[in-house]
Amino acid sequence: MEIYFSRRRVLIVMLAILALVGATLVILKISGQSLAQAVGFDSGRGAALAGAETFYSVDYHDGQDVWAARLCALSTEPACDFYQNTVAPFLWPDFEASQSLVTTEASGAVMLAEEVASTRGDTPMQVWQVAVNLSSPWPQGDGKTSFPAYVLVVREENGWKFERFLLEDELAKYIGGKQ
């Protein structure tokens, strides 16, 4: 049996594939995700920097759900629950009231510690110090636009994920560090 493909039919199939890929990308973009982020990061450094940048970047036009979805796309599942259900609803009324537009640059990552999460099957964790620079201060903050942040990242099956910022009280045990 022979199957004949006309040029027109091949063109239609290719257009359909392109439309499908395009639609997927649009959906991911709308939900605040990107293909690279959805699968986690190759290194803890990448997860720490992206986590800090995504957390502190605010565009009040986007709304609470998009901000949380972006953060969830690169966070561990328990952290995503926390940001989505607790943190975002608390922060976003202030962002909307003050019409916050904040871009963030995180840089200078230094790893301070490596541990394992024994309650998650001894999965590796890392603590990173990053320098955070905001284009303008957050309405809820102390007015500073540059400050260090200490980021906990966790390696899951599909790569390194952002979990949370360490509390000041937790920093005592993470002294030193390596580039």
Binding site: P78, A79, A117, R120, V127, L152, V154, L166, L167, D169
Partner: peptide, 16 residues
């Protein structure tokens, strides 16, 4: 200070 002793995974997990 409890936070200087517990694993860093504790906080998120107890919230969850």
């Amino acid at each position: 200070n409890i936070w200087s002793v517990v694993s860093p995974s504790f906080l998120i997990e107890i919230v969850r």
